[in-house]
């Protein structure tokens, strides 16, 4: 469902329907250093779900996750209220993987940091399929590339 709004004014270059699972905010820096490897991050999310810090099942309401050169914005379907705004330069990495519950759903884990890079946060969303998750990763990767080339 990649829908790029060609009218130029809109910041969003691709929008996806996802569900919000939860977030673990303000992890101290030394903790965030242990979450560099993808598997460490996945295991950390697993443990958080088992400890009840993160739910297994996302909230029912679908959200619109928009990826643009500015970053990732998560808003309600009518886009009236913005739930999260992750600016591109504070996004450290994005990870997508099968949630292992057998329904083919993919989890999207977004690791962000703060401007002083002292703490990091983990934001978890659920995609309807791995294809959707892959598309989101592709668009974000393109955003990183375009941000990189524009800096030079």
């Amino acid at each position: 469902s990649t829908k790029s709004l060609g009218n130029g004014t809109s910041e969003t270059c691709a929008e996806f329907r996802v569900k919000y699972v939860g977030a673990i905010e303000k992890l101290q820096f030394d903790m965030s250093r242990t979450l560099q490897e993808p598997l460490d991050l996945i295991n950390y999310i697993d443990a958080a779900q088992q400890d009840g810090k993160l739910p297994y099942v996302p909230r029912d309401e679908e959200m619109i996750l928009g990826v643009s050169k500015y970053g990732v914005k998560v808003a309600s379907p009518d886009q009236c209220d913005v739930l999260h705004r992750h600016s591109l330069y504070l996004i450290v990495r994005m990870l997508c993987y099968d949630d292992g519950l057998g329904a083919g759903k993919n989890l999207l884990a977004l690791k962000t940091t703060d401007a002083k890079q002292e703490a990091c946060s983990i934001w978890v969303y659920q995609c309807s399929s791995s294809e959707q998750a892959q598309s989101i990763c592709k668009v974000l990767s393109a955003s990183f590339d375009s941000a990189l080339t524009s800096v030079k």
Binding site: R33, Q36, P38, L39, I42, D46, L88, Y89, I91, V92, R93, M94, L95, C96, Y97, D98, D99, G100, L101, T113, Q117, S130, A133, Q134, C137, L140, S141, F144, L148
Partner: peptide
């Protein structure tokens, strides 16, 4: 829980962080 393929996108600004 068994995890299948994992796709990672890293911000070049934080490579290795």
């Amino acid at each position: 829980i068994y995890k299948s393929a994992v796709t990672t996108v890293v911000n070049p600004k934080y490579e290795g962080k």
